[in-house]
Amino acid sequence: MIQASKRVGNLGRCPGKQCIDPFREDFDMLQIRPVSRSVRLNGFSTCLRLEAVYWGILERIAEANECSVSAVLSYVDREVHLRQGGVRNFSGLIRVICVAWLQQPPGVR
């Protein structure tokens, strides 16, 4: 097995090219652990399981909108029902919303 330190620079996949190592020096592996939280979505209690990193992004979205994480999740739930008639994978939708929010320029968020 090749040690990670020897792979940095080309990661073994980019012969002749410099590749970017996706692991920052301060990468926290705890961010990938799944966290389940009980949430209330438009009056209904449910449990939502997301990786810790997504809960952090949801907190940032809630802070930017001056509301709670539950309010953000309720808004998404309501809107997806109004716009699309619902969604089969709500946690997947939340992950995509988090990534899309991060991709927006800071002035737009």
Rank of each mutant, 00 (worst) to 15 (best):
residue 1 M to Q: 12
residue 1 M to L: 13
residue 4 A to H: 13
residue 5 S to C: 10
residue 8 V to I: 15
residue 10 N to T: 11
residue 13 R to G: 00
residue 14 C to Q: 04
residue 15 P to C: 01
residue 15 P to G: 02
residue 17 K to Q: 07
residue 18 Q to G: 01
residue 19 C to H: 00
residue 19 C to P: 05
residue 22 P to I: 00
residue 23 F to D: 02
residue 27 F to S: 03
residue 29 M to G: 02
residue 30 L to K: 15
residue 32 I to F: 14
residue 32 I to H: 13
residue 33 R to P: 01
residue 34 P to F: 08
residue 35 V to W: 06
residue 36 S to P: 11
residue 37 R to N: 12
residue 37 R to D: 06
residue 37 R to V: 07
residue 37 R to L: 05
residue 38 S to N: 13
residue 40 R to A: 11
residue 42 N to A: 14
residue 44 F to Q: 15
residue 46 T to L: 06
residue 46 T to H: 05
residue 48 L to K: 00
residue 48 L to P: 02
residue 50 L to A: 05
residue 50 L to K: 07
residue 54 Y to K: 03
residue 57 I to R: 10
residue 58 L to Y: 06
residue 59 E to Y: 03
residue 60 R to V: 03
residue 62 A to W: 03
residue 63 E to F: 08
residue 64 A to G: 02
residue 64 A to R: 09
residue 64 A to D: 12
residue 65 N to A: 14
residue 67 C to F: 03
residue 68 S to P: 00
residue 68 S to L: 02
residue 68 S to N: 02
residue 68 S to M: 03
residue 70 S to L: 00
residue 70 S to F: 01
residue 71 A to T: 09
residue 72 V to A: 01
residue 73 L to H: 01
residue 75 Y to C: 08
residue 77 D to W: 07
residue 78 R to S: 04
residue 81 H to D: 09
residue 83 R to D: 07
residue 83 R to Y: 05
residue 85 G to H: 07
residue 85 G to Y: 05
residue 85 G to M: 07
residue 85 G to F: 10
residue 90 F to Y: 08
residue 92 G to H: 04
residue 92 G to F: 03
residue 93 L to Y: 11
residue 94 I to V: 13
residue 94 I to S: 06
residue 94 I to M: 09
residue 96 V to D: 12
residue 97 I to S: 09
residue 102 L to I: 12
residue 102 L to Q: 15
residue 105 P to D: 14
residue 109 R to Y: 09
residue 109 R to N: 11
